[in-house]
């Protein structure tokens, strides 16, 4: 799903930041929000709604709707459409009880 060889825009730097989502490893471009990396790898479903258990993914893409929220390092909820991964980050759909 990556766009390469765009006819007008220059190519972006290569992937280099390693992180996991629900335990699976992914490699992000520096500064790229985690939702974009996941979509580039065909992952659209970021969590399920707490009551009905319905799937949720990117909706507004600009941090306004909070539909894409995921847990970062089991510690804090972040918006996947805005938040870039740093090396070794663990993102999850749900918070694990500790």
């Amino acid at each position: 799903m990556r766009i390469v060889g765009h006819p007008v825009l220059p190519d972006l730097p290569a992937d280099e930041v390693g992180f996991t989502f629900n335990g699976e490893p992914y490699t992000a471009r520096e500064g790229e929000p985690v939702a974009a990396t996941l979509l580039a790898n065909g992952v659209r479903k970021l969590r399920v709604s707490p009551v009905a258990g319905e799937p949720r993914g990117i909706y507004c893409g600009i941090g306004h709707c909070y539909e894409c929220r995921v847990w970062l390092n089991n510690d804090t909820q972040v918006r996947a459409c805005l938040t870039p991964a740093t090396e070794g980050d663990s993102f999850t759909s749900e918070r694990t009880e500790v």
């Binding site: 974009a36 979509l39 479903k45 799937p55 990117i58 909706y59 507004c60 459409c81």
Partner: peptide
């Protein structure tokens, strides 16, 4: 409209032109 893959046109713009990921095939 809450299904993953349903998004605003602005989200499609951000994905396509900023992050360079296709909103869909």
């Amino acid at each position: 409209w809450t299904l993953p893959g349903a998004m605003t046109i602005g989200a499609a713009q951000v994905l396509t032109n900023i992050h360079r990921v296709k909103p869909g095939r």
